[in-house]
């Protein structure tokens, strides 16, 4: 069994329920969009999926490994792009990537080859020597996506990776991420923007700590545009 599976996750911050019995699954090679308005619980879910937080209830399976029982095996198969940039701005792109590779046990020639391949995949090879501070927002994001691919993870998590990007950069990174499923990667992409959902994507709609809908994007949209469907589903409570 591979891909990503979430079973009965709940999480509370004191009296506030951030996630309430959330379950869904993403099959291997699928692109799944986790769509939800701000404050729906997306970031909490990402913290739980990356083990920054440990849930009191529920289980997470990454590429077949249960995060709670074998955290290191699961994390080794997980690539993450956080909402907030985690690049070291004083280092070059290549240095940032080398640091990350070492944290995953890759060094020397093996690391260099993987880094070059990841940079090629994102068309970032010629920027390898630039300080990340000098890059624009779109290129920084691409560098982070390349970094998340170095250790060839089976599952990729991206938490609102297009925040703060202009339309062209947003399109470019969304396309790049969709392309990754061709090589068999499972992708979970969190966003609150319906135009980042492609018709063939799998869709999970999260609202007020619960899952409202799960299925194919086209099915969920039905006879109206997805943006409108999303607003009707979540708007009543807004």
């Amino acid at each position: 069994m591979s891909g990503l599976r979430v079973e009965n996750l709940s999480y509370r911050y004191g009296p506030k329920t951030a996630l309430d019995d959330v379950s869904f699954r993403v099959e291997a090679g699928q692109f799944c969009v986790l769509l939800g308005p701000n404050g729906a619980g997306k970031s909490t879910l990402f913290s739980l999926l990356t083990r920054l937080l440990v849930p009191p209830e529920g289980r997470v399976f990454i590429a077949g490994y249960e995060l709670g029982r074998s955290p290191r095996a699961a994390l080794a198969r997980l690539g993450i792009v956080f909402q907030q940039s985690t690049l070291d701005l004083d280092l070059t792109v290549a240095q940032n990537l080398r640091y990350f590779a070492a944290l995953h046990g890759l060094s020397g020639r093996a690391a260099r080859m993987r880094i070059d391949a990841a940079l090629d995949q994102l068309d970032m090879r010629e920027r390898a020597g630039e300080k990340t501070r000098a890059l624009n927002g779109g290129h920084r994001r691409r560098a982070e996506l390349a970094r998340a691919l170095i250790h060839d993870p089976e599952v990729l998590l991206l938490d609102e990776p297009t925040v703060g990007l202009d339309a062209a950069a947003r399109r470019s990174i969304t396309n790049h991420a969709h392309g990754l499923t061709e090589s068999g990667k499972t992708v979970l992409w969190a966003t609150h923007l319906t135009d980042e959902v492609y018709p063939g994507d799998r869709l999970v709609i999260l609202h007020q700590a619960r899952i409202l809908a799960e299925g194919g994007a086209a099915e969920i949209a039905g006879d109206m545009p997805l943006a409108e469907r999303f607003l009707t589903m979540t708007g009543a409570d807004a």
Binding site: L52, L75, Q84, T86, L103
Partner: peptide, 14 residues
Amino acid sequence: EMGSMKLLLTAPLP
């Protein structure tokens, strides 16, 4: 606060 700690804490290391 800046997030770079997340990189360390999500590495497959104890």
